[in-house]
Design a protein around this nucleic acid. Structure first.
Length: 526
RNA sequence: GCGCUAGUAGCUCAAUUGGAUAGAGCGUUGGCCUCCGAAGCCAAAGGUUGUGGGUUCGACUCCCGCCUGGCGCACCA
């Protein structure tokens, strides 16, 4: 019962899960929570079903903000290898403050960007140091959260920087006009290009220059004045943008599939993605819609191996709100640091355990508190339909009652308790049939059989809350069974054995579902 | 203004994608520990699914209008 009777997918796919990583110059905050938890649950579930999953942490590590950070870093040059950025936010704020107030600092910061982009060793060295420290910080939090991202999964903006000019050039060539490429007219009659009169001759080109910026015009997108809305891939000053990097990343993941000598991150398996999933908040829905459409228009969405279109999905999610229904912030209006949030969860769980389990040693209690506190946060997030906003409430998620992480963990621990006792009493586990007579036994067995379809709906719709809902109902079915059907004290040996088997299977499904698929730790005792 | 999204019990959320009497938890009320972990179980009360039309044998779900909230809409990510 190691898989809960779930078969591997008939047609395994190569799927990229892009966790849409944090901006590396700042400390991680509550805004990164859903992306990490959701992306990881999806990656874990896809992998469990036998798909080849390529996890990607697409960190923001090459933006203009690095200019001032590098400039700031120059003053910490002594023993840089031993200096840690203990508080990235403070460091960032300090740099931003000086950038604002000190014109000379700002000028040097701008120069530092150029230095970085030209590979000047001094700037690159400081950049490496900042990135290294940030990476350490991220890894620490991912470890705490039980996120399966590793350093090898990290490809940020810097990874794609050398590919951006080529991407723009390719999109500017006639590439998109071949075959059944985009028409010059959108379906609603809107022109597919907004090329100024002087440049009208490039109308067959796919990407066009408008107001000095390289743009891709796609049918169906208009701005406030009903004029065609471009996807800008190169600014008028020559700089590249988020959309450029996303297109370059998609091109790399689907088509390119090879490294250059400069690339730092390894290519640990054959890419050529058949499915690409982004977990970012819903505000970016239009951005991804346009990027995907641009990719399709360029025919870059065709997998070179299968010749079939790649499944491109934006697993958008809503905001985390405070009790007042407004974005979750600290009392002083700052964004909540992820580190503080996790610490508070563990602390609160520890306080509850102090009441419930005064017999535990401090060390044991803390270990349980960690699993319970982190699990509570993750479950509270995953149990909600990702597309909607939800209200973050400590008391609700940690109440240990009702549809919460702790309740599911508790149910699992209770089963384990029975199994421990059974092993003590049973010398040899006899093979035998499961006999279903009591209504609670039948209900539990039926529930167990529904596991596979719950898992399936997670990857079909990218909705882990279906699995949460299922696991919660399974726990309810088990609890009813537990109340009404004695296991260890069953009337006869066959019934006892049968019920023990039901316990084993239920525990197996809970362990797989919670721990392996959702990334929520289970405990034999709590 | 245009687009996306949401509105379901006092509160927080579901509803297997159009199926039978709209389900849970919290809270409220009442039961169940000499019995495998009561962080549990059983039961009750609580609904004109924002609103007005339409399609359908059948609508929380699909279509149209309206109301309310959130978000987005040319060189940020």
């Amino acid at each position: 019962m190691s898989r809960g009777a779930v078969d591997a997918a008939a047609e395994p796919q190569t799927a990229v899960v892009d966790y849409a990583g944090p901006n590396i110059a700042k400390e991680m905050h509550v805004g990164h929570l859903r992306s990490s938890i959701l992306g990881d649950a999806l990656a874990r579930t896809l992998a469990f079903l036998g798909h080849q999953v390529i996890r990607q942490n697409h960190v923001g590590d090459f933006g203009t903000q690095f200019g001032m950070l590098i400039r700031q870093g120059r003053e910490l040059s002594l023993d840089r290898g031993n200096v840690a950025i203990s508080d990235l936010d403070a460091y960032y704020k300090q740099a931003a403050q000086r950038d604002k107030e000190d014109p000379q600092f700002a000028a040097e910061a701008r120069q530092a960007v150029v230095d970085l982009q030209h590979g000047k060793p001094e700037a690159v060295s400081i950049w490496h140091w900042i990135v290294h420290e940030s990476r350490r910080h991220c890894r620490e939090l991912f470890d705490q959260l039980g996120i399966t991202l590793t350093p090898a999964d990290e490809r940020g903006e810097s990874f794609y920087k050398d590919r951006l000019p080529k991407v723009v050039a390719l999109l500017q060539s006639a590439l998109g006009s071949g075959g059944d490429g985009p028409d010059d007219q959108g379906p609603d009659g809107a022109p597919a290009t907004a090329t100024p009169p002087g440049e009208a001759k490039v109308s067959r080109a796919f990407a066009t220059v408008s107001d000095g910026a390289v743009c891709v015009f796609l049918p169906g997108y208009v701005d406030k004045d009903k004029k065609p809305l471009p996807l800008i891939i190169q600014k008028s000053d020559g700089a590249f943008l988020y959309a450029t990097t996303d297109l370059a990343a998609l091109h790399f993941r689907i088509i390119e599939n090879k490294l250059t000598p400069e690339d730092q991150a390894p290519l640990n398996c054959d890419w050529h993605a058949q499915r690409v999933i982004y977990t970012t908040d819903s505000r970016q829905a239009q951005h991804f819609s346009m990027v995907f459409d641009a990719l399709r228009a360029a025919h870059w969405d065709i997998n070179p191996v299968s010749g079939r279109p790649v499944r491109l999905e934006h697993a958008a999610f809503g905001a985390i709100l405070g009790d007042d229904g407004k974005p979750f912030k600290t009392r002083s209006g700052e964004s909540v640091k992820l580190r503080d949030l996790l610490a508070e969860a563990v602390q609160r769980a520890d306080e509850v355990l102090l009441q419930k389990r005064p017999d535990l040693s401090a060390a044991d209690r803390h270990a349980v508190a960690k699993a319970v506190g982190i699990g509570a946060i993750k479950y509270a997030d995953l149990r909600q339909d990702r597309t909607t906003d939800y209200i973050f409430n400590w008391d609700r998620m940690l109440s240990f009652e009702g549809n919460t992480g702790p309740y599911l963990q508790y149910t699992y621990a209770r089963i384990c308790s029975i199994l421990r006792k059974a092993r003590q009493e049973v010398s040899a586990a006899p093979a035998g049939a499961i006999i279903l007579t009591e209504p609670q036994e039948i209900a539990l067995a039926k529930k167990l059989l529904a596991f596979a379809s719950a898992v399936d709906s997670v990857v079909r719709d990218l909705r882990p809350h279906h699995l949460c809902h299922y696991l919660y109902e399974l726990c309810g079915a088990y609890s009813s069974f537990y109340e009404n059907c004695p296991v260890l004290k069953a009337a006869d040996a066959a019934t006892r054995h049968s019920r023990l088997q039901l316990c084993v299977v239920t525990a197996g499904v809970l362990r797989v579902g919670l721990q392996e698929l959702l990334g929520i730790a289970v405990l034999d005792e709590m």
